[in-house]
Design a protein around this nucleic acid. Structure first.
Length: 291
DNA sequence: CTATAAACCTGCTGGC
DNA sequence: TGCCAGCAGGTTTATA
């Protein structure tokens, strides 16, 4: 479930709460939620450590410990991190519990059990980290950088945007939103996009992500922040899960197709299938015959 | 390489 | 009301 905005929002909350706190105990309720070592070893290694920093890379949440190692959490489809006050009952679907030295606890909850918690040294990160693409909200991510990443990918742009090696952090919601903002059909070949389209896509990616973060992420099911509050970005999405509803720009009904096994939503008028001509985005009209 | 499917899991929703 | 098919924010692995 969580994509970059949902992970980033939670990282920001944890950053105000966790640094300086010591983890005094770790309990595992579902063994496979711990990756790479036995739960007992994990508990022994993590217990007693102080959290010094909170960070994020792609959809991974990174807690730096005072021995330099990283607690790496990936929520996958249904994971949440909930701050759990001493008097409250244990949250549903709790898989791992971190007890803090102020008496509060941080619960990793995950009904579907896809998410993973791991401990790793900075120079021995999980293999996936080595191939992650650029962070789309960092300065180095320019339209030219995006163009470089897309070059050579003949597949559908929607599928390419979901590839974490191309750009890190986009998932199904924000890929659809970014393509709508850019006026690009999800089945267009990534390699076929013009420089102008890539510039619009770059802006669409950043716009969709920052909007998502500003609204606490998109919740239509399970995403919650550390205080168990839902994000409200679902009220601000333009195409995701809006099948059959009128496009907010032109009124045409939003369509749903399947791309790379994922539900894909787009406006058939604002995101035309083939060429870049007759673009619904109202801008980009004249550059066609310039050459 | 690209592409598609299946696996990992459980819960929720909508249709009949 | 009850049951069942289908769907869900992600990633990895296996197969063409």
């Amino acid at each position: 479930m969580p994509e970059l905005p949902e992970v980033e929002f939670v990282a920001r909350q944890l950053r105000e709460t966790l640094p300086g706190r010591r983890i005094t105990a770790v309990e595992t309720r579902w063994e496979r939620s711990i990756q790479g070592m036995e739960p007992a070893e994990f508990a022994a290694e993590v217990s007693g450590r102080v959290v010094t920093q909170v960070g994020r890379r792609a959809k991974y949440l990174l807690l730096t410990l005072d021995d330099g190692r990283l607690l790496i959490i990936h929520r996958r489809m249904s994971g949440n991190l909930l701050l759990w006050a001493p008097d409250d009952p244990e949250p549903l679907y709790t898989r791992v519990v971190f007890t803090l030295d102020d008496g509060r606890r941080l619960a990793y909850t995950d009904p579907r059990k896809f998410g993973r918690v791991a401990l790793a040294a900075p120079d021995a990160l999980p293999a996936a980290f080595a191939t992650l693409g650029p962070e789309p909200l960092e300065d180095a991510f320019t339209p030219a950088a995006l163009a470089t990443r897309l070059a050579g990918h003949a597949g559908a742009i929607k599928a390419v945007l979901l590839d974490q090696r191309v750009v890190a952090g986009l998932g199904n919601i924000y890929a659809d939103e970014a393509l709508f903002r850019a006026g690009i059909h999800p089945l267009r070949s990534a390699a076929s996009l013009t420089a102008e389209e890539i510039t619009r896509l770059h802006a669409g990616i950043q716009g969709a992500l920052t909007t998502g973060i500003a609204h606490g992420g998109t919740t239509f099911g399970r995403h919650r922040d550390i205080y168990n509050e839902a994000g409200v970005n679902l009220e601000h999405v333009e195409v995701y899960r809006r099948t059959g509803q009128p496009c907010l720009r032109c009124g045409a009904p939003i369509e749903r197709i399947v791309v790379a096994q994922r539900s894909t939503h787009f406006c058939p008028h604002c995101q035309p299938p083939h060429p870049a001509s007759s673009n619904g985005g109202s801008q980009a009209r004249r550059s066609k015959r310039a050459k």
